[in-house]
């Protein structure tokens, strides 16, 4: 009951935040939620035991798909977010059939390589993507109103959190945790391993694509180097690790902690803040092996 009232309280707070917060905070909160969704999607794939480094790649695909849809095909901005998600999902379906036969390091490296391939394609298909110069969005979503964009991102975040909980509470959890623990046993219990891996790969890629599409709408600009930037992989991974993997609250806590820490550090020391940021990540991984949320959970349980 206490948990439920906390969740309701948090949602109400998040919904009404733009009515009292200043522009700066609204902007920071929006960006933290985008990264939070990426962190959750990365963790959802990790729950199957597969370490994906393709997060930035599908993020970029979604961003490009959304901008091209609006600029060249006159799709409405809100619709373009779905296009970003669907495009990323379709690419994941096509590639997943091949890369999901790989495991561990080989899967990780291949997904990382895919990101570079997407970036090279974006740079060279200049008719469609604007090449190295990038592409500008002519009609910003909601005429660039930050509050409306905030609410859009909040709704997206709620959908992603709900999806992550579906992964935790239904038979999907039993399938993917079994696959992570022992594929031989999973098979012997009747689990179609490939089907589940492909399903999770598609869903998480769609989330990453949608996140990219929203990001592109928010900044009205895509460009190969920055849209496929490794930030969209490394920050979410760090957030999930700091918060705690294999859970919904973990990546959320991690995104909030690291998101605000990086903003605060930026103000405190404009140049060296990434060093401190890196040290925070290293220290949590060494001393809080299960992340902030995981450690708190262990403390509560052992009492």
């Amino acid at each position: 009951m206490r948990k439920l009232s906390f969740i309701i309280g948090a949602v109400i707070f998040a919904v009404f935040l733009p009515t009292f917060a200043d522009m700066y905070l609204i902007h920071v909160a929006s960006s933290i939620m985008i990264f939070m969704c990426l962190a959750l999607s990365w963790d959802m794939m990790l729950r199957t035991g597969q370490l994906s480094f393709g997060t930035a790649g599908f993020f970029g695909l979604g961003a490009y798909a959304a901008i091209i849809a609006v600029d060249d095909f006159s799709v409405s901005p809100v619709m373009s977010i779905f296009i970003g998600a669907i495009f990323a999902a379709l690419i994941a379906l096509g590639l997943g059939v091949a890369v999901l036969r790989l495991r561990e390091m080989y899967f990780a490296i291949t997904t990382l390589a895919l990101t570079s391939v997407f970036m090279v394609l974006a740079r060279n298909l200049s008719n469609l993507t604007g090449g190295a110069a990038g592409k500008i969005l002519f009609h910003a979503i909601f005429d660039g109103d930050p509050k409306k964009i905030y609410w859009l991102i909040l709704s997206f975040a709620i959908v992603v959190i709900a999806l992550s909980e579906v992964f935790e509470r239904t038979r999907i959890k039993y399938a993917i945790s079994s696959i992570r623990n022992d594929e031989l046993v999973a098979k012997s219990c009747g689990i179609n391993i490939f089907k589940y891996l492909l399903f999770v790969f598609i869903i998480t890629s769609a989330i990453q694509g949608a996140a990219g599409a929203i990001y592109a709408q928010q900044y009205a600009f895509v460009e190969p180097e920055s849209t496929f930037s490794s930030n969209f992989l490394l920050l979410p991974v760090a957030m999930a690790l700091v918060g705690g993997i294999y859970s919904t609250p973990g990546p959320i806590v991690g995104a909030i902690v690291l998101g605000f820490a990086s903003e605060y550090l930026k103000l405190l020391m404009p140049y060296g803040h990434l060093i401190i940021y890196g040290i925070i990540i290293i220290l949590t991984i060494i001393f809080l092996r299960k992340g902030v949320y995981g450690t708190i959970l262990d403390k509560v349980r052992s009492k």
Binding site: Y174, N181, A186
Partner: peptide, 23 residues
């Protein structure tokens, strides 16, 4: 399995649930 292979992230009951769910 000859050497027991329990799914370590599940309780004993949940280990058995997996079989019933998918088989």
């Amino acid at each position: 399995f000859q050497t027991v292979r329990p799914l370590k992230d599940f309780t004993a009951l949940e280990n058995v649930v997996v079989g019933a769910l998918f088989a």
